[in-house]
Nucleic acid binder design. Sequence first.
DNA 1: CATATAAATTAGTGTATACTAATTGTGAAA
DNA 2: TTTCACAATTAGTATACACTAATTTATATG
Lengths: 243, 243
Amino acid sequence: MLFSAFVKMEERPVFHKGAMTDKISPTIEDYLMILFILQRDGEAVQGVRLAELLGVSPPTVTNTLKRMVRDGLVSMDSPHGPHLTDPGMAAARTVMRRHMLTEWLLSRMLSWSKVHLQAHEIEHAISDELEAALIADLNHPTTCPHGNPLPGFEDLAADWVSLVNLRPGDEVVIRRIHELAEEDSQLLHFLEEKSVVPGSPARVVEVLPFNQTVTLEVHGQAVTLGFAAAQQVFAERLAPQTA
Amino acid sequence: MLFSAFVKMEERPVFHKGAMTDKISPTIEDYLMILFILQRDGEAVQGVRLAELLGVSPPTVTNTLKRMVRDGLVSMDSPHGPHLTDPGMAAARTVMRRHMLTEWLLSRMLSWSKVHLQAHEIEHAISDELEAALIADLNHPTTCPHGNPLPGFEDLAADWVSLVNLRPGDEVVIRRIHELAEEDSQLLHFLEEKSVVPGSPARVVEVLPFNQTVTLEVHGQAVTLGFAAAQQVFAERLAPQTA
DNA sequence: CATATAAATTAGTGTATACTAATTGTGAAA
DNA sequence: TTTCACAATTAGTATACACTAATTTATATG
């Protein structure tokens, strides 16, 4: 309880940290989000990967995952590595949703390429009540500003294909920049500048696997992306030329 | 560094927690805010008081203050108890400002009586950049939604007097509900419902020191406040009847 | 001044979160 | 199969932040 001038004179017991609600810490919320994303995308969930993505050492991951298992958020019974339990999944979806809602909130005053990092700090502090107010205020969004679907709206993204899977001549609309690419603010800034943002129509100019590049034309301007980046950008095909 | 898919391939060293910036923790920020408020109001700054306001035990305060002294935020050299050093004061002003800006941000979607508590969670996550964007977006506010002046605008509040210092017949405009009262959401809710909010004109009906109450008429409705609450509400006198 | 009360500090713990160094798996290639 | 490379864990350490119990230091007041 911060401050509490009046609180005190109401003689009610001071709340202690680990109360019944068992508030999930920001650290654990970060683990939940990454586990959620990897699981959702069907990627291998291995400790090293988490360590890389979280920027911590492997032993730290081992330790933290143990606490998460103890707390019923993660299970280790599968051979495919750690995975979210039902309560863990529910908690992860909540954090993801709050992250995305926060991004929309911030997008009113920060540029598209900057909202992710700032939202990542704030998301841990969103209450149930604020979340509800945000959802209403934002008119029930189904994606984040970068086009990633809110938990429960994954179907939206089902038909969107990665740029690396397009062929020259394809007419598309940019729909989504994957969460794992959002971390790189330089890349996001670059994409924003080149109008490679959700909603932009684009035409594929060339795809050079040997060169690991994809070149688009967006708003009459040519943009060349490396495969690593292009892989994280998804588009909706407008004029399918072959099945 | 959270996530960092691309970060990694840029082969730059991973940031560790206690870097040069020496990010101030939420806990320390809370201490800074309370120290700031007490110092600003000229109140005695003693450990027990901090413990009460922070909802922690006195030994915890002793410990934490030691760390703050070590980190140059607080000094113990005065006989009047711990006080903020220049760097501590600067940090405290920043946190206060961010808290208040966050309150305005949230006031767009949460009721007046609820923004404080929620803002208290979020304030710790506001970056320099977001702060600047907020200030611009909010059109350079000089008070928080409850009328407390932003650091640097204390003069604004110089002429506002506590309701307990008014006399029957005084015509006033409600201007401010003190920070230390904001913690009590029940009180705030009550005040909001009775229109005892910044900007409301009011007339003092009676002041009963023996009964510890002040009765106002706001928007034609009578409201009786206990002294403890009235002490934290400040108003601007419109028709001074005596000096 | 002596003592009752209140404030502050020590001492000793506990948890979450990090690290490094060293060890143990494990799977794939020689 | 043996070995190399990578993954995972153990062991040991450190810091921030919290607590209770006990002690010390004020402060105040008869």
